[in-house]
Design a protein around this nucleic acid. Structure first.
Lengths: 207, 207
DNA sequence: CGTCAGCTAGAACGAACGCTCTATCCAGAA
DNA sequence: TTCTGGATAGAGCGTTCGTTCTAGCTGACG
């Protein structure tokens, strides 16, 4: 045990190739994944520390604000993760309608690959704490706004008017969010596939 | 025989004069409202029994299956509740596009009236138990399917082809679900209003 | 070598969890 | 009246919760 953590401490500041991610990163990643699946109240600090192969002391060392601070970090991590998926999909196609179609396919593939367990990385945590933990709500609202911003910019770049781009970005994010939820509950990619087609058509109307 | 008489006696004592809803109904309603706000794990049986003005003994008397059985009943109750709101909105307008617009406005009004706390009555419970409590998942999937069915029938009744009606019903429910979520997180009716307009346009395209 | 800050280790606390259990109440059947 | 069984009542079970606390280990620096 001591020898193991000695090695970890050896690479504490910057992860080396063979050492894996550092403790703080492991904790945030684990918290994000667990809360995405089980929600805020359904995920215990001890479960996080165990699955992250860290100890309770480490968790409270890096997150003195306790579970709430950890949850906010987890939401931000999920935000970042989805931004990458979103950007990749938007960049994969010149036409925004085709890009949104690619995005819905990407989300559907990820959902099915996780056996319908890993939905939106922030929805579950955010919904379960609505009106109770303002920090989490703010982090979630910021994430949604950021995602909408990326879609908005893509639409603007292809010549869609500001007003239309604003509204379309809202609907693209809302619809994909709802369709992912519906796909997860019904254990079928159909809602996401249909949503992708309808969104593409809606976007095509504005060019 | 005994069971029959027992049930008859039960019915008799159910609605005692001016006493309001019976114990079982109070428990289900309270459970539905609390889980809608706080999720499955965030809601305790004792909290439910207290707010329902029932005792722990009563809860386990009516729901011997414990928290899971109670959660399923709560989901079904929320399903029923939304079916009423959905039917009322669909019946309020002849044109399905106008009806969906009315529905989004109705949802937005309810959400704002609750200070952005009471979102979809089954999403929070369902998401927080994904992959853990199959009974809850099935009840939630059935609710979604039922809602889609109502929208589908409305679209068909106004002459939209079966294939289009099927897809549109999916997108209407998905989008409204996602927009309600976005409205709740951003504490603004804008996502729902935009979603309503886009859905109305999408429906109008198919007539 | 000694010191120190950063990080790890895990026992322990009070509170709350889901659930079981026995006791009691009371309307109607016999 | 006595009896019966649905419904209510709540103490208490073992467990787990989030959090606090002290102790120990490590590599870096003087």
């Amino acid at each position: 045990m001591n020898a193991l953590f000695g090695k970890l401490a050896c690479v504490k500041t910057k992860e080396k190739a063979a050492g894996g991610p550092d403790t703080r990163t492991r904790i945030v990643r684990t918290a994000s994944r667990l809360m995405q699946r089980q929600g805020y109240d359904g995920t215990g600090i001890k479960q996080i520390s165990q699955e992250a192969e860290a100890t309770l002391g480490s968790v409270y060392h890096f997150f003195p604000g306790g579970k709430q601070e950890l949850a906010v970090a987890a939401i931000r991590h999920g935000d970042e993760e989805f931004v990458h998926e979103l950007s990749a999909a938007l960049d994969s196609e010149e036409d925004p309608a085709a890009a949104v179609l690619a995005l819905s396919a990407s989300i559907a593939a990820g959902l099915r690959a996780s056996d319908w367990i890993d939905g939106c990385p922030i929805t579950t945590t955010s919904l379960g704490t609505a009106g109770r933990v303002p920090d989490i709500q703010e982090a979630a609202a910021a994430a949604f706004a950021r995602w909408r911003g990326l879609v908005h910019d893509k639409l603007r770049a292809s010549g869609i008017a500001e007003e239309d781009a604003h509204a379309l970005a809202h609907t693209v994010i809302s619809t994909l969010e709802g369709a992912e939820l519906a796909s997860q509950v019904s254990r079928s990619v159909e809602p996401l596939e249909i949503a992708g087609r309808h969104l593409a058509r809606l976007i095509a109307l504005h060019r």
